[in-house]
Design a binder for these strands. Sequence first.
DNA 1: CGATTGACCGAAG
DNA 2: CCTTCGGCCAATC
Length: 111
Amino acid sequence: MKADHNFFESVYAVVRQIPKGRVTSYGAIANYLSVKQASRMVGWAMNASHALLDVPAHRVVNRNGQLTGKHHFPGENLMEEMLQSEGHQIINDQIVDFKKVFWDPTQELLS
DNA sequence: CGATTGACCGAAG
DNA sequence: CCTTCGGCCAATC
């Protein structure tokens, strides 16, 4: 067993709660975790999240709505396909109307 | 234990 | 406009 009380667990918990058809950014998650300064850690957490099928990492993009981590997926355009499969439109590795589909945990998951 | 990296963000030049 | 730097935390080498 592994220590589940990790920073990652919190990230997974948020990403896992992302409603279908929505996307969020690393900084938004970090902000929700009160560690907005460590947005890089969110990306790192996602690196380990690829082992967890409950973590839709394809719904997590950078602040620009750009699929920065698509290169980490098994397929070259797998991330785009999954997002498009959820009704998103991807142009030039960027989510169209990103701000419209942007899902802010601090806004939706008001404690 | 020290240094490097990592799917980032934001500011400054 | 584009490039560079700093920062913050954690894991890996």
